[in-house]
């Protein structure tokens, strides 16, 4: 059998070796360095006056060390100190350090005293 490897085989081999070394190194660092093993969802929202209706853009970021599965986030629209409408966002998965965006359109017209509050947040560990 001819064991001489050509240039292409040698290059592919070294690329493969590099990929394996990076994968093993990266996963080992993840294993050793990870301390917080629970999801931590951070919710931010901003009113979108340019969009039709009373619409808010919602950004949900997972700052924890574990994916959040089936995250359910409630939002309450306050007008004059009273809850006038509620909405909920359901997200299948929010991976670690990922950000998911969504929009909520309330049926009530926007008034200057509007305020949006985040209600209960629930999620499962995958």
């Amino acid at each position: 059998m001819n064991n001489q490897k050509n240039y292409l085989e040698r290059t592919t081999f070294f690329v493969g070796l590099l990929i394996l070394a990076i994968l093993i190194g990266y996963l080992s660092i993840e294993i050793l360095g990870e301390t917080k093993k629970v999801p931590a969802l951070e919710v931010q929202f901003v009113h979108q006056p340019a969009l039709p209706g009373n619409t808010y853009k919602i950004d949900i970021k997972n700052n924890g060390g574990e994916t959040a599965k089936e995250a359910l986030i409630f939002f309450h629209l306050y007008q004059n100190g009273r809850v006038v409408e509620s909405a909920q966002l359901k997200i299948g998965y929010v991976p670690v350090h990922s950000e998911v965006s969504g929009w909520i359109s309330f049926s009530r017209d926007a008034v200057p005293t509007d305020s949006l509050a985040v209600g209960p947040i629930s999620f499962l560990k995958p």
Binding site: E9, F13, G16, L20, P95, V96, S98
Partner: peptide, 29 residues
């Protein structure tokens, strides 16, 4: 190891093609 190199490249490019990975995602994902 050559198989791993080919497979990694194929999987990476294919996931990019079908938009299941992009460079805005965190490295871990």
């Amino acid at each position: 190891i050559e198989d791993i190199a080919l497979a990694f490249t194929v999987a990476f490019l294919f996931l990019l093609l079908i938009n299941k990975i992009n460079f805005n995602m965190p490295l871990r994902e």
